[in-house]
């Protein structure tokens, strides 16, 4: 996707934080050197094109209770079936296929650690596969975005 100059500057500048003030679009317009209407148009266009996954609050996950990263080593022949089973759990909010013996990677989120353990046991029973349970011990960086400078 090709970004015009304003779009690129807008994403680069506001991927970490929007000005949460009385008139945010105007504040952005002042910084970007355009009008508030142009800022809003640009945001709408990027949103519609899917270049932005959202314009809004990112909530602190740890406040939601407990979470853990889980991996399963699924035989190739059972991948579709196991992926479908796993996706049915409302506790699962990301699920990625990765190239490794441990090929199914997903995040479990629940109100507390106990509920996650129950869910892990259930997954083990349902799939017959032993889940690797890898809760975060320490965060050294959390989704701060990264530079788009290399974007042509």
């Amino acid at each position: 996707m090709q970004l015009d100059d304003l779009s690129r500057r807008l994403i680069e500048r506001y991927q970490h934080q929007l000005p949460i003030c009385t008139d945010p679009w105007q504040a952005m317009a002042d910084e970007l050197g355009c009008s508030a209407a142009e800022v809003l148009d640009c945001l709408r266009r990027l949103d519609e094109q899917g270049a932005l996954s959202r314009v809004g609050p990112v909530f602190e996950h740890s406040r939601a209770g407990a979470s853990t990263l889980v991996a399963l080593a699924v035989p190739q022949s059972r991948l579709e079936q196991v992926a479908e089973l796993v996706n049915r759990y409302p506790e699962v909010n990301h699920n990625y296929l990765r190239e490794h013996d441990y090929n199914l990677w997903f995040v479990l989120t629940g109100p507390d650690r106990q509920s996650l353990e129950r869910c892990l046991e259930d997954i083990q029973q349902t799939t017959g596969l032993a889940p690797l349970d890898l809760p975060m011990r320490r965060a050294y960086r959390i989704d701060l975005g990264f530079s788009l400078e290399a974007t042509p």
Binding site: L10, I11, Y14, Q15, H16, Q17, L18, I20, L43, L46, G50, A51, L52, S53, R54, V55, G56, P57, V58, F59, E60, I142, D143, G145, L148
Partner: peptide, 9 residues
């Protein structure tokens, strides 16, 4: 709220 942002895809 961790941030309120234009979150790129």
């Amino acid at each position: 709220i961790r941030r309120i942002a234009a979150v790129p895809n």
